[in-house]
Write a protein that binds this DNA or RNA. Structure first.
Lengths: 223, 223
DNA sequence: CGAACCCATTTTGTATACAATAAGCTGATC
DNA sequence: GATCAGCTTATTGTATACAAAATGGGTTCG
């Protein structure tokens, strides 16, 4: 945690996201240790964290392997996220505060500005503000367990490469959803909030799924 | 995992459930090591697992502490379980097999027999069969992620001492729910399955909550 | 020619030793 | 008398050494 363990976690995670370690590949603790410049002890801690994040899979006495992901997995992931975030939004509608609404409004405006200015880093701004928006809503739900579960799911969607696949149209619609979610929260309408949030996640999945079509066909042709 | 780590995990978990380690108490790795008869290395692995199970809370460079639980936590836990198991039941209705129905039927009958015979271990039988029933349904849902999340939640409800609080009436109603869930699955009716499963979990919560009333009132009087 | 067994090597699991950091306590100073 | 500094001790974090287990390859036997 304090230094070596955290460093190892970040480094291995980075390599996994970069694709240096391929799905199914076995990760040797000694190799990772020399790669990260630390001993095996913090490496083992890092691998355990990555396993609980479902980035890798550990088999006792056999080693740890990079997770192999399927199309079915992606759909599963989004469905769970849609359900849990919908639930979070419903709870948030009952517990929303003026301060939270103000913060949501600021983030939503930030996305609007970034998208209209068409600057170089509009996507980074979107991703950052989007993360904040969802964090605020999940925070309003007031369940640490729920927060952890959703954190795990969003982490997993990162490793599946579901980001950077959205068109400008997708991003604009996404932010319109944000505005509607905020309206539902302000109205204290839990069912509305839940429904629009569920739609929001499903729409994101379809955007991703559309962009992925070629790769899917390639994969399936091999079988 | 293989031996020492697993032993340490089970031993510490056992002590936590027994209440030997009190909520908020700090757990010293060295003490646990001598208690379990292993070195600190597997102890640290065990503590990490227990932390991801939310049995303990780890603060970097400060130590690990037994989780402190509140009434709000219990309600939160059951609400999440109700939602997730309801979702699992809905998915199960679409994917149910004849074999699974047969196994469900056997477990339900096992509970009926145990409850009607009033034997000494009817509660153990109930708990075991109940676990099987829920495992079968979650398995039918076909989502490893969902299975893991629910496993974590049920583990947590164990540490909160939510078992051994149910009356005979509660257990009988519970098994009637099981029968109705099975009927919904056989009919392939996802909405019915989801609704009755959600009710099933909420009923369990109210049973538990009722038995807990005195303790709750004591707690609240202090504030 | 194939399969199974045994040995060498690699890799994971555990123990111990060491380093770094935090908590507690004594004593000095204001 | 209280507070803060510095030291001592206790505890966590990391490295290394050792033990157990698994993989892989080669040989032998059917």
């Amino acid at each position: 945690m304090s230094k070596a363990s955290e460093k190892a976690y970040r480094e291995i995670r980075e390599q996994l996201l970069r694709g240096t370690f391929k799905p199914g590949e076995r990760l040797i603790e000694d190799d990772l240790a020399s790669l990260c410049g630390v001993s095996r002890t913090p490496i083992r801690e890092a691998l355990r964290r990555l396993a609980s994040d479902m980035f890798v899979r550990q088999i006792p006495n056999h080693g740890t392997f990079v997770i192999e992901t399927s199309e079915h997995d992606v759909e599963d992931l989004f469905e769970l996220r849609a359900m849990l975030e919908g639930y979070a939004a419903a709870r948030a509608a009952h517990r929303v505060t003026a301060d939270a609404l103000a913060r949501l409004n600021e983030e939503i405006a930030r996305i609007d500005r970034a998208l209209s200015m068409q600057g170089a880093y509009y996507l980074d701004t979107f991703l950052d503000a989007n993360r904040s928006i969802h964090a605020i809503i999940i925070g309003l739900a007031g369940s640490e367990r729920l927060r952890l579960m959703l954190h795990s799911l969003t982490e997993q969607s990162v490793v599946l490469g579901t980001l950077h696949r959205y068109s400008m149209e997708d991003l604009k619609r996404s932010n319109e959803h944000h505005k509607e979610i905020m309206a539902a929260l302000r109205a204290g309408d839990a069912i509305w909030a839940q429904a629009i949030m569920t739609a929001h996640i499903h729409a994101a999945f379809r955007s991703f799924s559309r962009g992925e079509d070629d790769a899917v066909q390639d994969k399936e042709r091999k079988d």
